[in-house]
Simulated assay, not measured.
Amino acid sequence: MSRCASYEDAHDPKYGEPFPVPIVMATADALKGYGTIVTDFENEDVEITPWPVKGWRTLCPGTGTLGGLINDELTYKWVGDQSMVTDDTEDGDFITGRLPKNIPPSDRTHVLVREANYHPDGGQVFFPKDKDPFVALLALPGDDIKMEDFVAFYFDGSFGVQIHADIWHQPIYPIKDESVFLGKQGAVHACVAVDTVDEFGKYLLMPLKPPT
């Protein structure tokens, strides 16, 4: 995951109005193309993409998928007006979003987001350890990503998700003040990122409330 962007000037008027992201309830049908629901974390197999070949010769059978898996426990939390994540396989906390200027921490309705990334080497599983609700920001594959391609999915906490390889995403956003998630993905963990502020001059405005 990328952790290069700063949210210090997220409220600066030079960025204009943030781009509104639609939100839908996460269901098996709604997630088609993006990923699949996960009800059993331990028995969920991570989708691994075979290592790409550059020439006309094919991979030898059984190779190109042997990098193994990473299992981790992720703590997502709100600290003041900032969304943060701690990954037990990496060092320190990092920021994934910030509340708009006019939204208080006591009523988190939306969050400003500027980054997303995808993993070409395989899927990634997010599973709420205590059945806490959350929101996932996703977009379908394609390097020519546009702001209107993003969709927010509201999960009620009764299941997790495995996003497919090449799906644009951010670390998920908790609804509670703090939530713990189990995660797993391919150990190669290749990452391709986009920064909407750098590329489009705007933040995404992502809802945190379920659709009505």
Rank of each mutant, 00 (worst) to 15 (best):
D149C: 04
T89I: 08
T36P: 01
T96R: 07
F126D: 06
I167D: 01
L31Y: 08
A165H: 03
E42H: 01
W51D: 11
G80K: 00
Y173K: 10
Q185G: 09
L140N: 05
N43M: 02
L204V: 05
G186S: 14
T27I: 08
G97I: 09
K101A: 14
L99T: 02
G97M: 07
G142A: 01
V188H: 15
D121P: 07
P141L: 09
A136E: 14
A116D: 03
P141G: 06
T58E: 14
F153S: 07
Y76I: 14
M147T: 10
F155L: 04
Y7A: 10
F200R: 13
S83T: 02
A190P: 04
V192I: 15
G16C: 03
T212Q: 07
F159N: 12
W168A: 02
I23G: 02
S106H: 11
R57V: 13
E90G: 05
P104C: 09
C60Q: 06
T75C: 13
Q185D: 03
T27Q: 10
L112C: 06
W78H: 06
R98F: 11
V151T: 12
L204Y: 08
D29L: 12
F41T: 00
T39L: 00
G67E: 10
F159C: 15
K131S: 11
P174N: 12
P120G: 00
F127T: 02
L69P: 06
A190M: 11
G201L: 13
D166Q: 10
L182I: 03
G33K: 01
L66G: 05
R3S: 12
Y76N: 15
L204Q: 05
I172G: 07
G64F: 05
R3H: 13
L208E: 11
E199F: 14
R108L: 11
P133E: 11
F153I: 09
Y15R: 00
D29Y: 09
N117G: 12
N117F: 14
G97H: 06
Y203F: 15
P211R: 00
F127Q: 01
A30M: 12
G62Q: 05
D45V: 10
V135C: 05
V21P: 08
P22W: 06
I145W: 11
G97W: 07
P52Y: 07
P50T: 03
V135Q: 04
P171I: 12
W78V: 07
D40R: 01
G62C: 02
